[in-house]
């Protein structure tokens, strides 16, 4: 269970939050159809730092943004909606997944 730093309330367990998908998806209706389809449906799936939105639904109710390393699940930053994405370097060597002991994704 993640420990998520809400920018308004401080660190709280993941139970109190709901994920709200990618952050920094710009809603600009004045674009052509292919660009609008990108806005609606196309998301990258980064191995490494991902900016994602969370809502502190069982707390202050606010939406905010988090930078999370998808390899280690380490949370590198959290910031209020509307603020620019902070420039945070990825810790560790290129964010490689531990090869031994976390190899397969198939439940036994």
């Amino acid at each position: 269970m993640l420990l998520i730093p809400c920018p308004f309330c401080g660190p709280r367990p993941e139970l109190e939050f709901r994920n709200a998908g990618h952050a920094h998806v710009t809603r600009n209706p004045a674009v052509d159809d292919p660009a609008w389809a990108e806005t609606l449906f196309f998301r990258d799936n980064p191995k490494g730092i991902m900016a994602e939105r969370w809502r502190h639904v069982s707390g202050c109710g606010r939406f905010f943004n988090v930078l999370r390393d998808t390899v280690s699940d380490a949370i590198l930053a959290s910031y209020k909606a509307g603020e620019p994405r902070p420039d945070v370097p990825l810790p560790g060597p290129e964010g490689e997944a531990p090869r031994i002991g976390a190899g397969d994704e198939v439940a036994p």
Binding site: S72, D73, P98, R99, I100, G101, A102
Partner: peptide, 27 residues
């Protein structure tokens, strides 16, 4: 018994001399 260490996503390293997997750097 490196089970919990491995669950914590720490990398194990193989110690060739003693032929054991040991905890590496903690994650």
């Amino acid at each position: 018994a490196v089970h919990l260490f491995s669950q914590s996503r720490g990398k194990l390293r193989f110690d060739a001399e003693t032929q054991r997997y040991l905890p590496g750097d903690p994650a």
